[in-house]
Design a protein around this nucleic acid. Structure first.
Lengths: 205, 205
DNA sequence: CTAGAATTCAAACGAGCGTTTCAGCCTTGT
DNA sequence: ACAAGGCTGAAACGCTCGTTTGAATTCTAG
């Protein structure tokens, strides 16, 4: 199913990502994953140690770069003398939207991400917090600047809800085919505009 | 765990709903469900036939009344000589929000619902379509009236995304405790206002 | 070329899964 | 009081799960 010249680890990660997106973490078995990757069953435990570790690596592989891009975009926004809610939201949404429309398995990963949000999995939330809390923190600070009327408590749960709803929406966007006669970039920008408006309405009062 | 004077069927449904919300459909086993319900393992297959049927019944029990309320609310809206997007959205959101903040397991069920949306489970989507497509259809008609500039295709996938994002947001709302000094009703109305604004931004262009 | 490490492989492990069975228990109606 | 049918109980079915094992193979350095 996968080209044989990619490494075993990479093929396992690709297959796992795709199967987790379709069947969930509990629903996709290591036997399905290794069969789809054309790899021996034991390879997962050899290369990753356990299924739980494999799940974490599926996240790490994409989130490392995604969060770098988000922080870079946020840094650009913060450089401007005047910026608003929509700018901060853009720094959060656009990199993820690009991923969800990428040629490779990016769309599958965003669906995995949406699942993880919906699951409220404790173990997974800890992993995300341990590895990427600095990103959330920087965005929370920026949001607090552009939403000064919200107290910290209120801001935090609104961000939680909005980021979940956004992730869900982006997971769906990946599936939707763009209208004919519209370039990939136009379609993405239009989607970003909608999502940002969508999220802004949820954050402002 | 459950009061013994409730019927076996009801206790199974309650426990299943709660465990499906926490661990997913594949993640929660019938042994966990029956143990939490203080019921024999075989009772599930006796009363429901299979795990799949049990899942369907968990949905049916809540969705029958929820969708009735939604349709009743929509009928009220349609009676008015002039109504807008926010009115239609209100008919969709308010009954679900009431459920997610109900005393009984309603909050758990909305989390189950959010999971089901995120999973894109084919079997489940078929069940929902078979049993409740008339509700979606009536709402789609009403939405088409207040959003005449969107063609049918565009409207349908936007409704899909918005309803998913709304369900996700409502699942989270159920967990959030209201600010002190605010009545249950006030809190719910405020949440409904936010969600409706949120969704309206995603539907309008 | 060859020793040693890294990787792959087939096979098996115990545990947990959904489901089935059937004996026994209640609860009805007569 | 008693038969019948609805329901519960303990046990077992075959199957799939994640993981482990140890031998076979491939890769890599000296």
């Amino acid at each position: 199913m996968n080209a044989p010249h990619f490494s075993t680890k990479q093929r396992i990660l690709d297959s796992a990502e795709s199967l987790f997106a379709r069947h969930g973490f509990a629903g996709a078995s290591l036997r399905q994953v290794t069969a789809s990757a054309n790899v021996n069953l034991a390879a997962v435990n050899y290369h990753f140690g356990s299924k739980e570790n494999l799940i974490n690596e599926v996240f790490r592989r994409r989130l490392d770069s995604l969060n770098e891009e988000r922080l870079a975009a946020l840094a650009e926004v913060l450089k401007q003398p005047r910026f608003g809610l929509e700018d901060v939201l853009g720094a959060f949404v656009r990199p993820a939207l690009a991923l969800s429309m990428a040629e490779d398995g990016g769309a599958g990963f965003v669906r995995v991400l949406a699942r993880a949000f919906a699951e409220h999995n404790e173990r997974l939330r800890k992993f995300l917090h341990d590895n990427y809390s600095h990103v959330l923190k920087q965005f929370a600070t920026a949001f607090a600047q552009v939403l000064p009327h919200l107290d910290k408590q209120e801001l935090y749960w609104r961000l939680d809800i909005v980021s979940g709803a956004l992730t869900y929406a982006m997971a769906d966007f990946g599936v939707i085919k763009r209208r004919p006669g519209m370039s990939e970039l136009q379609h993405r920008d239009l989607a970003a505009e909608h999502l940002i408006k969508f999220a802004a309405a949820g954050l402002r009062t």
